[in-house]
Design a protein around this nucleic acid. Structure first.
Length: 175
DNA sequence: CGACTTTGACCCGCGC
DNA sequence: GCGCGGGTCAAAGTCG
């Protein structure tokens, strides 16, 4: 699972945890979420928000889309950055992973009554994106999809996130 | 006043 | 070609 190299810089614990999930997540179109795998875990996020269930899915993105329009004119490659879906049971959409995110869009998605929010890492030169989406079937479930890899360290104090990680329990019996 | 959010418009790929 | 759906832009608004 080399794709998680550098993912969540400064917290190899989560990278290792994410490596547990080998999802058949067909990203992009259709009911991609149906391919998510559940990895029972317990976690406290944001100090007070309860999480009872989580799952990780990694995807080697192979969709035909370049990142920006400016690059698009010459970019003929169909290579896309790996995307990593992170499913969490939480009452809030925003999981504070230590990075600073700026919201740049929100769209209503089909087959889902909740909108999907698009965020970009505000660190200069870091074009990591993430999208946050709540499931219609279970509004307590939030899916966060990361795209790209952070090329810098976490700007905020790691303490909170490390605390979260320390409380994380990954059950590997399913794999 | 700077950083961030909101929101409608725009762009693009894809299926018909 | 057209319409639809997903993703992004950017101006205006909001907040600390």
């Amino acid at each position: 699972m080399e794709n998680f190299h550098g993912f969540f810089t400064g917290s190899s614990t989560l990278a290792a945890a994410a490596a547990l999930g080998h999802g058949g997540f067909h990203g992009g179109k259709g009911n991609g979420l149906s391919g998510l795998m559940d990895v029972p875990a317990s976690l406290n996020v944001h100090g007070g928000v309860l999480s009872q269930n989580e799952s990780f899915v990694d995807e080697i993105g192979n969709l035909a889309r370049t990142e920006t329009k400016s690059e698009k004119k010459k970019g003929d490659k169909k290579i896309r950055k790996p995307r990593h879906a992170f499913q969490t049971r939480s009452q809030v959409d925003i999981l504070d992973d230590g990075y600073r995110w700026r919201k740049y869009g929100q769209k209503a998605v089909k087959n889902n009554k909740f909108p999907r929010s698009y965020y970009r890492c505000t660190h200069q030169g870091c074009n990591v994106k993430k999208q946050v989406q709540r499931l219609t079937e279970d509004e307590g479930m939030v899916v966060t999809t990361y795209e790209g890899t952070h090329s810098h360290t976490i700007q905020k104090s790691n303490d909170n996130f490390e605390h979260i990680l320390s409380q994380m329990q990954i059950y590997t019996s399913s794999f």
